[in-house]
Design a protein around this nucleic acid. Structure first.
Lengths: 205, 205, 205, 205
DNA sequence: CATGAATGAGACTTCATTCAT
DNA sequence: TATGAATGAAGTCTCATTCAT
């Protein structure tokens, strides 16, 4: 009956936050930010409606916090590309596979929602500027250029190509996030054709 | 003495319906079915809130009517592929270009919304079954197989390839529909690489 | 193509007013004052929505005018009792039969609605005071007392008896007005037992 | 530390439900299902508009739940007649008195509203079929026939007589439910004359 | 920390009423 | 006179958020 000590409290808080985040990601991704109801999130997290507001001041804040996390995660994934082994195209394939595989879809979905929703306050918009597509393009640019030089990647304006590739990737993630059976996610190799140099990809096979 | 004659009335009604449809497509595509408020549509159409309900019984009906139209439109676009000139790959390129160009994005968006939203009643779901992805795959299958035989199109399970291609296309349309600047729509030629036979596409260039 | 002359116009006006009244009575009686929609009345009258408002300034006015008419009609029916042939009980039986038979039900319904509805403005309330139940009781009182003296009618406070009888009659009319099959309107003879002197009614049979 | 325990919660919920039901019965009986506004019910119950929907999913559901309760109540009252002491006519008089006395009027009103309103969905209609007037007639039939055999009750088709009697009773309850002063509810003895055998009722006095 | 009752703003929808023709 | 399109107020219902316990 003794009150929980600070450590325990802290642990409970962290656990709860994780429960909530996990639940919220699912619900947001499935239903979109507007259709997602706080009550759904609470239920999926196994907690009461009111408790949600002990951990997150508002739906917007909860959403924003997820978006931020998604962005940090995405950025770190992007950065990690330089630590990967292999040639440029192999690195990109690995990164792409990681994005497609992993539970990355909800992240993309969240970011997309954030970009397109307009009910969300200024704070999110700031985040979005900070992690705009250009940011990611900048990160991948050197690698892509290297790939072009070694003849692995398709010729053309590299920024444009990266932007298109990321857009396609985002599109796939977005339509995939809702769990609709109808759509079909392409295999990595298929997507790589978008940016691979034709001859290289031939010899690659 | 007499009130407006039939012709005038008809004309007014048609005008209004078009105004409303145009406004609704924009709003629905931008915001999704839930975020789209009838008041927004009314305002964008330049009419009162109540008048909306003279022309469409409910938000759902309005949405459904747009979705249906979108589907019919899409289906007819797909069917038209067989009337196009050129080899299989040229036909597909032309169709793809048409989809990307034209104001087709909102249509795709609507269909996607219909597929993913769950606030929509049974009627829409029926429509969706009628125009599932499989339907479209079936339509394109013969053409694709022909393309494979003449060596223009990539080898592999043709249904799978078509499904992936359409999914990518849908994804692009969806992220594009919101009018976000960040994303970058690939050129047709780039997208064609997804399904073109490597050698063929080389010689094509 | 010559414009209608005054007489014709007048005639049209009268016809229209009758159409509207007839339609309105039906709709009001069936649905009650709130559920009755002006559009229903217009449709049943075979005219346009707008035209209704050329003849009646508002729903309330239309309703009120019907109520007034119903009251005048009812009062005159009541008054006519003294012109009827026969003994007091025979007169009352005749009046009762008239009320039950005739399309009188809607009238009762209207008056009842007016009494119970509270959305109706002051003017109707004035009417109601003018034609309160007491008014009718006063009218029937001499007859009833005569009936008691000749031993045809049940003993007891005559005002009370009349009031009860009229209330029962009203109740029947009200539940009958909606056209529900479930209810069963008693025969006149049955109702007369409420106020007939037992012995008299025996010998009457 | 813990929130309200189960018992307390249960109690609060029950209280609220009772508040709401009491308020709703009054408002529905007074105004009818259409005129009755949820806001009126909320106000009369002393709660917010939104809380109403915590306890009842919709206006229809609230109405239906009251109707159902009214029907069950009515049926049980009818059934109880066989447990009452006395001869058939005494039993019927007791039942009638109970109906007239008690707060039964709102119940009758509700059932009547349900029968006559047409805004109410299918579910209520099902209920109504289950508890149609015929059902009640069937329940009273044996008793009535017994009453006829012992010469207490008026001769004639017993089903018809019961139906008329119940209709009159309903009519009275309906016009009484609105709380209009004008009407006058007959005493039980007066109503009994409708169905009592003349001679019997004579000796009864 | 935890609960769920309670609130209220806002959205959809209906319909009496007005208005241009 | 006659029409039906057009308006806007009001009602039902949802849900993010707060509050008492």
């Amino acid at each position: 009956m003794a009150p929980l000590n600070d450590k325990q409290l802290h642990q409970i808080r962290d656990e709860r936050r994780e429960q909530i985040k996990a639940a919220a990601i699912q619900v947001f991704a499935h239903k979109g930010i507007v259709s997602a109801k706080m009550s759904m999130i609470a239920e999926k997290a196994g907690i009461s409606n009111g408790l949600l507001y002990h951990y997150y001041k508002s739906k917007d804040e909860l959403f924003m916090s997820l978006v931020q996390e998604a962005m940090v995660e995405t950025e770190s994934a992007m950065r990690s590309i330089y630590e990967m082994p292999g040639t440029p195209i192999e690195k990109i394939r690995a990164l792409t596979a990681e994005i497609l595989d992993e539970s990355g879809a909800p992240y993309f979905m969240l970011i997309h929602q954030a970009r397109t929703s307009d009910g969300v306050p200024v704070k999110v918009k700031h985040l979005l500027e900070q992690y705009s597509m250009d940011t990611f393009i900048d990160m991948l640019l050197p690698l892509y250029q290297e790939g072009q030089q070694v003849g692995e990647l398709a010729a053309g304006d590299p920024r444009e190509l990266i932007a298109c590739f990321l857009s396609v990737l985002t599109g796939i993630m977005v339509i995939n996030a809702n769990g609709i059976e109808d759509y079909r996610i392409p295999k990595v190799d298929m997507l790589m054709r978008l940016i691979a140099h034709p001859v290289s990809s031939l010899s690659n096979k």
